[in-house]
Design a protein around this nucleic acid. Sequence first.
DNA 1: AATGCCATTCTTGTATACACAAACATTGAC
DNA 2: GTCAATGTTTGTGTATACAAGAATGGCATT
Lengths: 216, 216
Amino acid sequence: MSENVGRWLRDEIENAILSSEFVPGERLDETVLANRFGVSRTPVREALMQLDAIGLIEIRPRRGAVVIDPGPHRIYEMFEVMAELEGLAGSLAARRLDKTSRDAITASHSRCEQSAGAGDSDAYYYDNEEFHKAIYAASRSDFLQEQCVQLHRRLRPYRRLQLRVRNRLSTSFLEHCAIVDAIFAGNGDEARRLLRTHVGIQGERFSDLVASMAAR
Amino acid sequence: MSENVGRWLRDEIENAILSSEFVPGERLDETVLANRFGVSRTPVREALMQLDAIGLIEIRPRRGAVVIDPGPHRIYEMFEVMAELEGLAGSLAARRLDKTSRDAITASHSRCEQSAGAGDSDAYYYDNEEFHKAIYAASRSDFLQEQCVQLHRRLRPYRRLQLRVRNRLSTSFLEHCAIVDAIFAGNGDEARRLLRTHVGIQGERFSDLVASMAAR
DNA sequence: AATGCCATTCTTGTATACACAAACATTGAC
DNA sequence: GTCAATGTTTGTGTATACAAGAATGGCATT
């Protein structure tokens, strides 16, 4: 538990939303949450305000707080921005690569290879996250890294859905290989291009996403 | 005044920070702010929590809230990300341009021409903002637009400093012309490239920034 | 004279209480 | 029978009070 009840609650509720325990559109009642976490209403309100400021929930006066439902179109837009930011991270990483970052990328990349080879989509989901985070870190831009991590978190539930799609595991890993090659070769433009298409959701992948969202 | 005191205060304090009334490093005392705005401490805390969640201030447990001092390096990183996002907005705008957006861009562009011609850097500062917002809107991506506006707001004070630099007004306007041409020609890649260099701060412009920050 | 410890004060953090607004239901009138 | 108005209940919004922790200053001791 964090040093501060409000902040702890914020993280707790944020995780509950990102892990789909609280689904989009769901009403978040202050007293219910207060009872559930064994605190008074005040820190709950503080946490909700912060989540509202971040954009995860919406507090409408006298209507209560509800989890924001982004909808397929907005999800697409978010992936579009994510692709752009990851592309930038990749191109910076290619230029600024040092040994530490290189080792981190190599390590997470080979973990991806293992879980992809085993067809373990849950393990790959986790290793993939580490791989991308290693690239953010390699960009050597703290701000960019923070932005990427934040967006990555918000897109997490949908990314998980995507991995369920047939053959996506091996395709994803092959793309990783090319990305690693480009970064290690110092080819920033190529790394950017590859990451943009790797992260973005074009054509059929968008309909896969919509379909899996609807199936939920 | 907004429908909600906490939210109103958040905007109020945010503006005070972005207009450099509260400078980086400054301590924000809850009771002082409460007295100043004629409200109790509770809504002030709510506002501060939200600003903390956004990343404008930092609340350290039992140490109070201070305005975050980004420092030159982080400012540079923020401009770097901004350049990337604006590039994306420009490339999408070039692809998706419709009459409404085209008119909005043309209108704000000619206002820039007037204020640049008159050498009125304060007017240009405002018109320039509208010009860039018109491009965000033309991207037809709500999420991208929101991200751009938010970052634009946070970088506002530094952008203002930059415009003071000699000849920057006319240079900036010439760049705008090329950007408009590329977007209207439907040349997304060119619009992206031009916006990236227009917004980013390379070489001497970075030292200009650092110098003007130090002079403050 | 310097350093360490204790106490006091200030500030944040949490909870409770009170007030206001909105929505829904019930009753009365047309 | 239907519509409107009023009252009650529920839930949000704000403020105040109380508690806990951290920092600073002073005093005492070495």
